[in-house]
Every structure is written in C-alpha cells, then in structure tokens.
Design a protein around this nucleic acid. Structure first.
Lengths: 339, 339
DNA sequence: GCTGGCACTCGGACAGGGCGAGTGCCAAAA
DNA sequence: TTTTGGCACTCGCCCTGTCCGAGTGCCAGC
C-alpha cells in the first residue's frame, strides 16, 4: 500500500505532466507543489512508484511520466470530477438550445463536446431498441410497394421500403396501420417483437397475411440491424494537439475513428450507468492504445438510450474532461426529454 | 509559348515528383525519361520553366518541384484521364451493389472513393431542389402536431415536425395529403413552391387555412434550408500520407473538413458539368491552399443532383484520381437511377 | 525516515567538416 | 541558333565530437 504522500507525489506528477507535456523531475515537483519534503525524498518515493509500475522514465536521466496504471490510480482515487464554470455551462445551453431536430441535436452535441474538451467527440444516436415508439406509419408508394416509417420518442425517424409479393389494398393498409399503432405506441422497441407476432393471423386474405408478415419482418429487421447504431464524430482537428510524437500516433487513431464498428464497440464496452474511463491499453483496439476514452450514457428519461464520449491522448485533463462529458450528457438528456 | 520539349520536361517533372515526393533534378530526369537530350539542355529548359513560374526550387542546389501553375498546365494540356483497370471497375461494382438505402449508398461511395484514390473523399447527398418528388406524407402525431415526410426519387427521405395553432381533423388531413400529392408528385422540388401556393385558399375553415399555410411554410422551408445540403466525408486517415511536412499541413485541412459549410462551398464552386480540378491556391479557403480538389457532379439521370470529389495534396496523381472520381460518379448515378 | 551531497548517466543542442546532388555559366560543337 | 560537355560553386544533409544540464541513485549523517 502506498503512503499518503506517495499518492500525493503521483497526483502531482500527473498534473504537471498533463500541463507541461514533459517528463517531470523531482526538483521541479517540489518547487511547484508544496509537498513539504525535499527533492531527495521525492526521488525515493518516485523510485517506489516506478517499482510498482505507476510511473516510468522514457530514458535514464529524464523525469518520470505516468503509466496507464498510474493514470488509472489517479482517476480512481486521486481526482474528482471538475464541475464546469458558469460560462461553460452557459455555453452548453446556448449551443444546444437552438437545435431543430435530432440530427441537429447530435451534430451540435458533437461540436460542443469537441470544443469544450478540445478533443475528439463521439456521439451515438439514441438507440432504437431502448427507445419507445411514438408512431408507426405505413404508406403506399406503389401498388406492391410500401414505406414503413418509425418515429421514436427521442425524435429519431427511421424509414424502410418494403416490396410485397402482392398488392395491398388501401383499406387493409389502414387496418394494419391502426392495429399496429394501437399495439406498439408508447411501448419500448425491445418489446415490439412479441407484441406483433400474432398480427398476420388476424387478416383473412392469404395474400394479405403474407404481406403483413413481410412488413413485420422488415420492421423487426430495422430494429436489430447494425444500421440502428449510427454515430457522429467531430473535432478530429484536435488530434493535432496530441503531443510532439503526434505524427506517429495520429494515423492509427484516425483509422480507428473511421471504423464505426470500432467506435461502437468502444462505446458498447462502457458501463451501462455512470461514467467510464478507459485508459491506454485498456482499450481493446490497438490503434487506440495511447488514447483514453471517457464515455457516459445519456437519455431522455432516467435510463440511457445511447452513449457519448471523447477520445484523447492518455495525457489528458481527466477531471475537466469528465466534468464536460457529464455535463453535456445531462443537458442533452434534458433536451431530448423536452422534445 | 513553350516548345513541345519543354512541355515534355514539365510533364516528366510532375510525374517524377508525384512518384518520388522529392525535388527532381536534371540528371535524374534524363535518366528516367527518354527525352533524347542531355542534362544540360534540360537545365536550360528548367530555367525557362522556372522563369515562367511553372516550377520552383525549394532551395538553391535542390531539384525543382512543380508550382500550382505547373500542375494547372499539366492537368489542362499534358495529362489525360486514366481509365480504371478491370479489377478496379469490378471493385466499384462489388462495393456499391449491396447498398440498401441512400445512407448506405453514400456511405459506401465515400469509403470506395477514399480507398480507390487513397485520399479524402467527400460525397454530397442528392440535393432536394434538383430531385423530383416521389411522395409527400402527412401524419398526425398529436391533435395539433403533424409530421411531414418527403420522399424523393433518389431515395432520400426528409421529415419535419409541424406544430399547428389549432387541431387539424383527420378528414382535412387526408384531403390535404391527397391534394398535395396530386399536385407535386413527379415534379421537381424547385417547382413545388408555385404549385402549392394557392392551396390554403381551397380550404373552407379559417383555422384549416392557417394550418395548411403552416404546413406549406414548413415544406418550403425544408427545401431551401442549408440542412438539405448534407454530406459525408471519409478517408481522413489518408491525410497522413501527405508528405514529410504533413504535421504542418494536416491541421488546417482537418479544420476545413470539419466545416461542412466550407466543403459545400468548395463543391459548389465546381463546374456544373464535367470534372473540376482546383489546385492549391485556386481554392478560396486558405487552409486548403496546399491541397487540390477533384470534383464532379453525379445524378440519377442526365443531370447532376449532387457532387462528389476528393481532397488531396497538390502533389497527387491527377490522371488516376480523375479517372477514379469519374468512374465512381457514373456508377453511383446508375445505382440511384435503378433504385 | 528524511536530508544534503556527490558522482554518474544520458539526451539535446550546437558547431564543424565532408559529401553529393544540383545548379549556372561558358565555350565549343552541331 | 541550339545543344553539349565541362567546371566551379552553392547549399542542404548527415555524421561526428563536444558541451551542458537536468535528473538520477546512492550514501553518510542528522
């Protein structure tokens, strides 16, 4: 177990390194922080911290930098979440209040997060399966061609064209539309499958039954498809602030960010509730092994319907970033609840 | 006027520089290309080309590199458009054929273009104003709340929520829906405003007239709004192949790419028909002053409904890039026409 | 357990020298 | 007039050696 002072030394190292981007030595530490001990003592503590794997030195005769394990300890035990300043809060409100539709909300959120944290922001669209149905619409585009439109309580709209084997009459269409809506409106998407499974049987015409089945199949397919998991990223220009070695780091990160699948997995790995911080090698994807990901769920009501977060160098201002991410997530939740 | 041989020298310089990324000297030129003259002659030609501003030398005693003006001449008079290889064509088909909806088409196109050209790809969604209406749908979400859904022949779907002052009955709604569709289906969006302007008057109830006006206002607003001009970008990881000085160049480019407005303006400046190549400082945005943009319109029928293109270093393989951009645009056009 | 002192290590910055690619100019050849 | 070979010159790059200083580890003393 590390003594209180050693933890204090680690905290100081992290803070200084995040600020200066340079390995921090014992002398500088004692000058900038009131540790109440001499550099020599700090050196001993550093030796222990290094022994334990919390810090490392890039080369002999250089200062120390925190390891992933060091950041982990810092985040878990040494750092709080820094609340935002009043101007920052106001900025969030100003920025988000003018949004007109869901695309706009997500777009603004991405830009806001990127600006606030000065890092790469990732925002997932509210997931279908966790939302509730506001309305289901069926329209006929051509005799044997329907369009299915789903509207969620988070304002998301999903549409899909359905080709039927046989023409489907207007009355049957109205009928199906009414029944469908009466069953699913207000329910969670996750519950939809079992709510509609017996619908085809209630139609008399054989052809109609087939059509209804096709429509329902499309509906269910829409719900499970990966396509539901859209996301938006922004602030990639902030990658240039990565550090001196950014030319080497930036490429794998950009590549990872281009792969929606990777990002979705990244967010998917985060805890369901509360904020998740994944540091360096804790991220499965190796392109992201020198980045940290701070993510949190957000939602219109009590529970999360999607996640958002930022990706930045492991050497990031964790308290500030966590504060910004949390604040934005909360406010986006409110916005969605209102709309 | 430059002699034939001098043009040949310029062409050789561009080709070599694009290939090697290094200033090219007179000796190397004569070795790699069969110019039939000695290095000394080439030196004289180079002196003239430099005098005229087509090439420049980064420092004394280094080789020459093409200037923007040099690339311009190269593109205009010296280079053809390189047709794609058979495997490349096949790749386009394979890649694009599986698309299920418009988002998917655009997404695949972006990835395809980025991969083919190894540069940053930008694809604009088919514009509303140049598409034709396939269907207009009105649904009632709540008594005084409607949803307007627009479907275009290019498969694009746009929806908007309309809040009305007064409730709007089901019959009025059906009535409006029918009238609206009978007037606009199959027409170009650009013509919609004048086609619907007298609709409110045909309703008897004063309240209904107000509602109809509101709905139409929203409809027209949807058409003109910037929001219509969505686009998707991809392949930003290719920016790392920019050259040795990429750490300096990449930032302004990333910043420019984040600004949809900038990109839209960029594409907007391109010619309506045929391919447009903007080289270096020809681009208005200064962050892009060391990049070239190759863009072209694409569309489902004869005329262009949107544009797509790539952004890369001025030192790019113009013939190859132009070939890829043109081929992709053509095939996307076909895909859209079929769907 | 803390502190001051001390020798040691090593990376980074700086300067000088050699190398070589490339140039410009010029006089001679075609 | 154009092309060519020759030649002196320039200058960026790389390699080397040196110096400097920050930072370390260790140790003896408090």
């Amino acid at each position: 177990m590390l003594s209180e002072r050693r933890l204090e030394v680690l905290r100081a190292i992290v803070q200084d390194y995040v600020g200066t981007e340079e390995p921090v030595g014992s002398k500088a530490l004692t000058e900038r922080h009131k540790l109440g001990v001499s550099p020599a003592t700090v050196r001993n503590d550093m030796a222990v911290l290094e022994e334990e794997g919390y810090i490392a030195q890039p080369h002999t005769s250089a200062g120390r930098i925190p390891t992933d394990k060091g950041y982990r300890l810092f985040v878990d035990r040494l750092a709080g979440v820094k609340p935002l300043s009043t101007p920052e809060r106001r900025a969030i409100h100003n920025f988000l209040d003018g949004a007109v539709d869901l695309d706009d909300v997500v777009g603004r959120t991405v830009r806001l997060l990127a600006q606030l944290t000065r890092q790469v922001a990732v925002v997932q669209y509210p997931s279908l399966t966790r939302s509730t149905v506001r309305h289901v619409e069926l329209l006929s585009l051509a005799p044997a061609r329907l369009m299915l439109v789903l509207i969620t309580d988070t304002g998301r709209v999903e549409q899909r064209v359905v080709d039927c084997a046989a023409p489907f009459g207007e009355t049957s269409l109205a009928d199906l539309r009414a029944r469908l809506n009466s069953r699913v409106v207000g329910r969670r998407f996750a519950d939809v499958p079992q709510l509609v499974q017996d619908l085809p049987e209630s139609f008399e015409e054989v052809e109609d039954r087939a059509t209804v089945s096709t429509v329902l199949a499309t509906l269910l397919e829409t719900l499970v498809e990966e396509h539901e998991e859209r996301l938006m990223i922004g602030g990639t220009a902030n990658l240039t602030r990565f550090g001196h070695d950014f030319p080497l780091m930036i490429r794998p990160v950009l590549e990872a960010l281009e792969e929606q699948v990777v990002l979705l997995k990244l967010l998917g790995e985060a805890k369901e509730s509360g904020m998740t911080v994944r540091i360096g090698h804790e991220n499965a994807h190796e392109g992201l092994s020198s980045t940290s990901v701070v993510s949190v769920g957000y939602g219109s009501g009590g529970e999360a319907v999607a996640k958002l977060g930022v990706v930045g160098p492991t050497r990031m201002d964790y308290p500030g970033t966590m504060g910004a991410v949390r604040a934005v997530a909360r406010y986006v939740g409110q916005i969605l609840a209102e709309s």
